[in-house]
């Protein structure tokens, strides 16, 4: 049985995800080549720039290996990572993996000056639990397919969704000092 969770380290805040998992005593490995997936029991696609990720996915041949990996392992994407997991993105520059049936809009809240922090309700973590959600030039989920479960909403929009072993978040749980969402993912 594999113990390590892989963090895609092509570009973005992959080290923040590693810090969060390390705080839970979970072993991590940086994934820069598809073959590293063989050592992992789960994968996180971090925040970063989805145009850059698209480029590097293409050059280093990540599309099929990640799709294959996702058939029997959990995968979580935050922000740009969520865009890469989506079925559709509103931008011709992005080629998502299509691992979860959602449509996303990039930079839906505007430029950096509109980035924000807010408390969201997280009933799946327990009754009356909340989480401090950090949104940075964040994307929005505009459509959710019938098999997709909405775990967190903010102002009527889903911001964390799940379909079985695939988790997509518009915000950055890795930037807080609160590992509950990473814990939840690691138990999937």
């Amino acid at each position: 049985m594999r113990h390590t969770i892989g963090i895609l380290a092509l570009q973005g805040d992959f080290e923040k995800h590693a810090e969060q998992l390390t705080s839970l005593n979970i072993e991590t490995i940086q994934v820069r080549k598809p073959e590293t997936l063989e050592k992992c029991r789960g994968l996180i696609i971090p925040g970063g720039e989805s145009t850059t990720l698209t480029k590097l996915f293409d050059i280093y041949g990540f599309y099929e290996p990640i799709r294959e990996f996702s058939r029997n392992h959990p995968v979580m994407g935050t922000c740009a990572g969520m865009i890469m997991l989506a079925a559709e993105a509103d931008d011709y520059r992005i080629s998502p993996l299509s691992l979860i049936d959602i449509s996303v809009r990039r930079n839906a809240y505007g430029r950096q000056i509109n980035s924000f922090v807010t408390n969201v309700d997280t009933p799946f973590l327990g009754e009356s639990e909340t989480f401090r959600a950090i949104f940075i030039r964040a994307p929005q989920i505009e459509r959710v397919g019938p098999d997709v479960e909405i775990l967190i909403e903010y102002k009527g929009n889903p911001v964390m969704v799940r379909n079985k072993n695939i988790f997509a978040l518009a915000f950055h749980p890795e930037l807080t000092h609160d590992p509950r969402i990473h814990q939840y993912f690691s138990e999937a």
């Binding site: 805040d13 923040k16 740009a80 950090i134």
Partner: peptide, 18 residues
């Protein structure tokens, strides 16, 4: 404080990049 946090957060997103 929150502004500083989101601003450092954006810088975090740019890591490993050009």
């Amino acid at each position: 404080e929150e502004r500083f946090e989101t601003n450092v957060g954006l810088a975090e997103m740019l890591k490993g990049g050009v």
